[in-house]
Design a protein around this nucleic acid. Structure first.
Length: 468
RNA sequence: CGGGGAGUGGCGCAGUGGAAGCGCACCUGCUUUGGGUGCAGGAGGCCGAGGGUUCGAGUCCCUCCUCCCCGACCA
């Protein structure tokens, strides 16, 4: 492979920046912290949306849209919520050429405005559960932005639901965590995630329980890939989200919210990417296979086009690269940088052999396959790569995870990966001591890996790490 | 806001008082297409802004602006 990127070993953050630029994923916008997502990067986001949206709908939620602008007074109705978000709000004070009577905030999240409308839409227990989701953009003024990982404006989906009982709300928040996020991340992104509970200090502003999915990047740091919250009755009390139960009594609803963002693209890059660039898992890839015309000769161009058609007919997202004005090496490198899982090369030597050269992006392995077996071979490889990427990422994570027994050992081990230790050892002053070394509790898990119903369960395990 | 750096073609950088340059990218032509081909030619600059010193300032002095990195918040 040609060396066109800073290597991961030399400088991981710079490697990340190089990949963004060379794979044409995204670049900085003119206002600090904003992001321009380029067509290839956006096509990856569209694939994410498509997969996540289908899973959300399978859980019964419906899409809706709520406004970008929220009255400042709405945020102030929930004390913890406003306290949590105040430092990062963008506030509109002037519009239409004059000062506004009440400032308008640009949504940092939509709990408040959706709460207002839930209170109007919910009358009786027959209206519950109310299951909503929105695909939109939000703004949180970030002091230290990084493309995809932490930007002032980002794209996401935010789900908001209202239920009759705490148990229903908890069950739904957990269902989304498992059936939407975990399933998508593991089976499509091929990223292994730890599913756990946030500590009180890491909890969402206004939630009674925050659950998280944590992935390990190739540099050993953790990335929160998604969250699901039980909001208790905090927002239903603030926004008067009530219903009449079967006995005719007025009750407050129990609400949830859950979100996943363009940050997942950052996680994708840093989980699977290597010194050759991005590596996209086949099930996610906007382009699963590129058919490269090495050189126009002996009808090779027609064979390339026919091959791409056969692949498309077999359900493979295929693309032709017949830009013979660009040198072969350049084009091979381009597709590697973009992480296309399987590349087919067709040139005179292949034609003479009645074959096509097949290259795996993840391993670099090359083989020659008879033309009439090419489509079947591609489909086998796509399946194989999907499985292998998850296995490789899981192996890397497990190899960089250490069981320890003290806070000091955990802080040390977390400099290069994840550390696991008893929660009882950490709780209290432990979180502050870890923070001194840049380490946080990523999540709490049961001894068997289960999702704890509270942080007071016996024998909980704390997973700690440095995080993005 | 505390500490540390940097502003020079699109991007990355060199240039310590005397002709604005280099690499990549871009355009033209030829060449080469099986791993970022090679050669030749070419286009592109208010050197962050303002003021000062000097015969002469990208370079020295002053003021301002912006950006980046390290700390506290965060999907």
């Amino acid at each position: 492979m040609a060396k066109v990127l800073t290597s991961q070993a030399d400088d991981f953050p710079r490697w990340y920046q190089d990949v963004l630029a060379k794979a044409q994923l995204a670049e900085n916008g003119p206002v600090r912290g904003t992001m321009v997502i380029r067509p290839y990067g956006y096509s990856i986001w569209e694939r994410i949306q498509s997969e996540v949206d289908a899973r959300i709908k399978a859980c019964g939620a419906e899409n809706a849209y709520f406004p970008l602008f929220i009255p400042e007074s709405y945020l102030q109705r929930e004390a913890e919520h406003v306290e949590g978000f105040s430092p990062e709000l963008a506030v509109v004070t002037h519009a239409g050429g004059k000062a506004l009577d009440e400032p308008i905030v640009v949504r940092p999240t939509s709990e408040t405005v959706i709460g207002e409308y839930m209170s109007r839409w919910i009358q009786s227990y027959r209206d519950l559960p109310l299951l909503l989701n929105a695909w939109n953009n939000v703004v949180r003024w970030e002091l230290r932005p990084r493309l995809f990982l932490r930007t002032t404006e980002f794209l996401w989906q935010e789900g908001h639901t209202a239920h009759a009982t705490r148990e229903d709300a908890a069950a739904y928040a957990t269902r989304i965590l498992r059936e939407v996020y975990e399933d998508f991340m593991v089976n499509v992104l091929a990223i292994p995630v730890l599913v756990g509970r946030k500590t009180a200090s890491e909890r969402f502003a206004g939630a009674i329980n925050t659950m998280t999915l944590e992935a390990m990047m190739r540099d050993g740091k953790a990335l929160q890939m998604g969250t699901s919250h039980e909001l208790g009755q905090n927002f239903s009390r603030a926004f008067d989200i009530t219903y009449l139960d079967a006995a005719g009594e007025t009750q407050y609803c129990w609400t949830t919210s859950w979100g996943s963002t363009t940050r997942m693209i950052g996680g994708l890059i840093m989980t699977h990417g290597d010194d050759g660039g991005l590596v996209v898992p086949p099930l996610l890839a906007p382009i699963q296979t590129v058919v490269v015309l090495v050189k126009e000769a002996d009808g090779a161009g027609e064979r390339v086009a026919a091959l791409a058609d056969e692949l498309a007919a077999a359900g493979v997202r295929a693309r032709v690269d017949d830009r013979t004005s660009v040198s072969f090496g350049r084009r091979a490198t381009d597709w590697e940088l973009k992480g296309v899982p399987v590349r087919l090369e067709l040139g005179p030597r292949d034609l003479a052999a009645g074959a096509v050269t097949v290259v795996r992006r993840d391993t670099g392995e090359k083989s020659q396959v008879p033309l009439d077996r090419a489509v079947a071979r591609v489909r086998e490889l796509l399946d194989r790569i999907q499985v292998d990427l998850l296995a490789a990422a899981t192996a890397r994570r497990d190899a960089a995870t250490t069981d320890v027994t003290t806070v000091d050992e955990a802080a040390e081990a977390a400099q290069t990966g994840f550390a696991r230790l008893p929660w009882d050892v950490v709780r209290g002053e432990g979180e502050a001591r870890l923070a001194e070394r840049g380490v946080t509790v990523r999540c709490l898990m049961g001894p068997d890996g289960s999702l704890p119903p509270s942080e007071d369960e016996p024998d909980l395990v704390a997973v700690v790490a440095r995080a993005y």
